[in-house]
Amino acid sequence: MNEIKVLIVDDSAFMRKLIGDFLACDSRFHVVGTARNGEEGLKKALELSPDIVTLDIEMPKMNGLDMLKQLMRVKPLPVVMLSSTTIEGAENTLTAMQYGAVDFVAKPSGAISLDLHKVKDELISKLLLASKANISSSSHQHAQNSSVYNLPMGTKVNKMICIGTSTGGPRALQEVLSTVSKDINAPIFIVQHMPPNFTKSLAARLNQLSDIEVKEAKDNEIVRSGCAYIAPGGFHMTVVEKKGQLSICLDTSSPVKGHRPSVDRLFQSISKISGYQALAIVLTGMGADGTEGVIELKKNKDVLVLAESEETAVIYGMPKSAVSTKLVDYIEPLRNVGSFISRYAQK
Rank of each mutant, 00 (worst) to 15 (best):
D302P: 03
F104S: 09
Q192N: 13
E216Q: 14
V6E: 01
S339F: 05
N2T: 09
N197A: 14
T155G: 03
A322S: 13
D11G: 10
V176R: 12
K301E: 12
H236L: 10
F104W: 00
M97R: 07
V32R: 04
S27R: 05
K257M: 11
L283M: 14
P108D: 11
G234A: 11
L327Y: 02
N92S: 09
F340H: 04
N336Q: 14
D211W: 05
A203F: 13
Q174G: 14
P78C: 07
V148K: 06
D103R: 11
L177R: 06
H140F: 13
K299M: 10
T312M: 01
K200L: 15
K272Y: 00
D211R: 06
I19G: 12
A313M: 07
S166V: 07
L306I: 14
L209E: 15
K326T: 03
G110V: 03
A288K: 12
Y316T: 01
S271R: 08
I222A: 11
S125R: 15
D121W: 05
L250N: 07
K242T: 09
H259F: 14
K218A: 15
L116K: 01
L334V: 12
L65M: 03
K118F: 13
N145S: 11
P187H: 10
K132V: 01
K156F: 03
G154H: 13
P76V: 05
D103H: 04
T199N: 10
K243D: 15
T238P: 04
K299I: 01
V282G: 07
A217W: 06
L114W: 11
K107I: 05
I212D: 09
E216L: 10
P255V: 06
S274Q: 15
V328M: 05
I52R: 04
